[in-house]
Write a protein that binds this DNA or RNA. Sequence first.
DNA 1: TCCGACTGTTCAGCTTGACGAACGCGGCCA
DNA 2: TGGCCGCGTTCGTCAAGCTGAACAGTCGGA
Lengths: 206, 206
Amino acid sequence: MTETDPAQPAPESAVDATDGTAPETTGPLAHIAAALRRERQKAGLSLTELARRAGVAKSTLSQLESAAGNPSVETLWALSVALDVPFALLVQPARPQVQLVRAGEGPRFAADRADYLATVLSTCPPNARRDLYLITAEPGSVRESDPHMPGVVEHVVLSTGRALVGPSDDPAELAPGDYIAYPGDLPHVFEALESGTTAVLVSEHT
Amino acid sequence: MTETDPAQPAPESAVDATDGTAPETTGPLAHIAAALRRERQKAGLSLTELARRAGVAKSTLSQLESAAGNPSVETLWALSVALDVPFALLVQPARPQVQLVRAGEGPRFAADRADYLATVLSTCPPNARRDLYLITAEPGSVRESDPHMPGVVEHVVLSTGRALVGPSDDPAELAPGDYIAYPGDLPHVFEALESGTTAVLVSEHT
DNA sequence: TCCGACTGTTCAGCTTGACGAACGCGGCCA
DNA sequence: TGGCCGCGTTCGTCAAGCTGAACAGTCGGA
């Protein structure tokens, strides 16, 4: 691994929430070292103890925390399991930013029907696979979504109005404040039951 | 890596969305192989071409897609960059489920003030670091949050009412449907300006 | 004070992943 | 048909990760 070919057309997302890719390109090893040490002592484990639980040599762990080394996936995996933290947390650097989308603004997903409107609030930055939508729908319009990618989970919080939301075979009637989550890779539905129905939808690409 | 000590007190979250850890313990290598091949041909790249872009030997890539091998993080990282997919996608298996929380239900975060109420809708499963809250607040209550973990990003969509939300030094006044995201590791505020103000909050632990 | 158990570090060794070259295969064009 | 270029696979070689033991340093008790 001498160099990482920077020839990347950077097919960024539309809204360009933030650039999560650039800082990552520096390499994850430094971040791994820091995250590993941080998570370990957050869990109150000694280096020796963690190594024992994870089934790796403590020397290995020591080197990793010293940012000396390029661990194999299995090794890092074992550590993430022993630490009970998501694997990605050990690898992905973070990136903050402030972003504001006014009610009317934002790219809209023109629906097949005019009475269903989905506004993109935050499209997934490359390392945090989730989209945020604001849904506005009028009654009479049944929004039958075909299944998306496998592993997608959708979360819906109803803001105003009433709606029938969930898996097509067993949707739930939501009132303001109600919440439902369901696998997006199965057919699902969004049907407004009142005028002025709005909801927040989080689509999680896992 | 002979054994993975299963002695894990499983400090699960309250709501217990699903257990994402158990199925992962089988090992990520098989999933990596599948994901790698899938993402590659989804991108329309030949094995040779992807290897060239990522700067890894095509033999290595071939072995990885054959589930023969335990790649180093750098290698897998280079591939994830070349494929322009989040690193975690290559490693994490998915897990679906349906979950419903009614408006009044769900564990509540009793606030320091009685006029601010946060209901947990979906607390982060171990491999998808984000929490979903429903916020109910009354005017007069300024909710000054101290910074959380570094790398946390909060997303707020206002459902009803009006509120002042964002970084403490420069909050934004939100109307229904407005959206804002800001780094959660800086001091931030949530102040309702109207009675019956509700919002959806996504806390992303990165 | 000495002793033991603990922390995290460093050092030889074996193992293994990454590399490049050579291979067999299939499509294309002269 | 022969030649060529692309594909993905397999094979030795070398470097690097992982390991276990031996190492200095710290804390607590006898």
